[in-house]
């Protein structure tokens, strides 16, 4: 095996591990927002690491895997952001241990600002 193949395999295994952790977090966390935290962060790094690992293993594919991972890096936070806002606006509450919810406190003002 070449040295870059070993790096690629290590990256693939790390990526798969983080993908698994992300899915486990989605199952274990108590409410939507915390699930989103685990789901977004761990799966983004996991997918990036796995895809770039394949790119490092086959140097000819490097640019294409780079494009795919760049796309995932740009779009994944955006979609979780949109989902979080949709969840809050459709009335899903935070769990009871939550300390503070500034967004719910300011919601009236935001609505007025949007209308004006």
């Amino acid at each position: 095996m070449q040295w870059y193949e070993i790096i690629g395999v290590v990256m693939i295994v790390t990526g798969a591990f983080f993908l698994f952790l992300g899915a486990l977090g989605v199952i274990r966390m108590p409410d939507v927002y915390n699930r989103m935290q685990a789901g977004t962060k761990a799966t983004t790094l996991g997918a990036l690491s796995l895809i770039m690992g394949v790119g490092v293993y086959h140097p000819a594919w490097f640019f294409k895997t780079g494009i795919i991972s760049l796309f995932i890096l740009l779009t994944n936070p955006v979609s979780s952001n949109a989902l979080a806002r949709a969840a809050h606006n459709s009335g899903v509450p935070l769990i009871e241990e939550s300390v503070v919810d500034k967004y719910a406190e300011d919601k009236e003002e935001i609505k007025k600002e949007m209308e004006s």
């Binding site: 935070l94 241990e97 919810d101 967004y103 300011d106």
Partner: peptide
């Protein structure tokens, strides 16, 4: 951040204290 998330997910007590701040 991923090491942080991994720690929270694996630990059996789920050490979280969430909130929305500005």
């Amino acid at each position: 951040s991923n090491i942080d998330v991994a720690k929270r997910v694996i630990s059996p007590k789920l050490p979280i204290k969430p909130g929305i701040v500005k």
